[in-house]
Design a protein around this nucleic acid. Sequence first.
DNA 1: ACGAGCGCCTGTCGGC
DNA 2: TGCCGACAGGCGCTCG
Length: 274
Amino acid sequence: MPELPEVETFRRYLLQGSDGAPSILGKKIRNAELLWEGTLAFPAPDEFLARIQGQYITGIGRRGKHLLIRLSRDTLIIHLRMSGELVVEEQTEVPGKHYRVIINFDDNYRMAFNNIRKFGRIWLTDTPEQYLAHLGREPLSDDFTPEELHQLLTSRSRQLKYFLLDQENIAGMGNIYTDEALHRAKLHPALKSNTLDRQQANRLWQSIREVLQEGIKNQGSSIDWMYRGGDYQNYLSVYNLEGEPCKNCKTPVERIKIAQRSTYYCPTCQPSPA
DNA sequence: ACGAGCGCCTGTCGGC
DNA sequence: TGCCGACAGGCGCTCG
């Protein structure tokens, strides 16, 4: 499911709580339950279950699309992939059909990793950096500059869609926000990255940050049956809007396949490179 | 180096 | 109604 804005929304939910769910910060872990062992990327199940017991939640961070739950001794890294979500609730609730991992706290609350498609993964480690080392720049950080984006773009020749989805360049973009950023920057998704001039790179930098910030402000996008918290889906310009008029020029939005993903763009505002 | 194709999973939707 | 393919917010792998 989630891209950077949705993961950031989950981070804030865990940190601040919401109606009916407390913050998990400071809670002590009584034990964990592994309902689908494949969720666990590291370590082995026995070690995971033994090691997580008794640790306290000391912080909640994010790196790209990875959630970083800081514990007394370790970090629990969670990647939600396509259909994951986190639920904080009382232990008396009936567990959801697709709960894969449950963390029980010692105060009658729990945090459940709900994950229909089983693609999500978690790691428990005291060296989290090694699992995050492949990630590129944090697009909303203060020291990510348009100059640096231009440098990244021109260092290789990639179609812009591929470039933005590649987490080794920028960490956090997914299918929705990539299409939205390219439309806002008026760049065709199949344009080669190394053909962009400084002005185009500046526009893309600005567009990436705007769509991500607007996504966070609206608590992410809720599409289909999953994650109903946010409402940024109501402000999308092209994603999932095939045949609808472009918000700028009224040309019908088109859908093509790039990188095996549906890719939405306006053929007028984002002219084809060919 | 780049990108296509596929696998991993469960569920929904539209067409026939 | 039932079946069947297409599709879904991700990513790692192979192959040419």
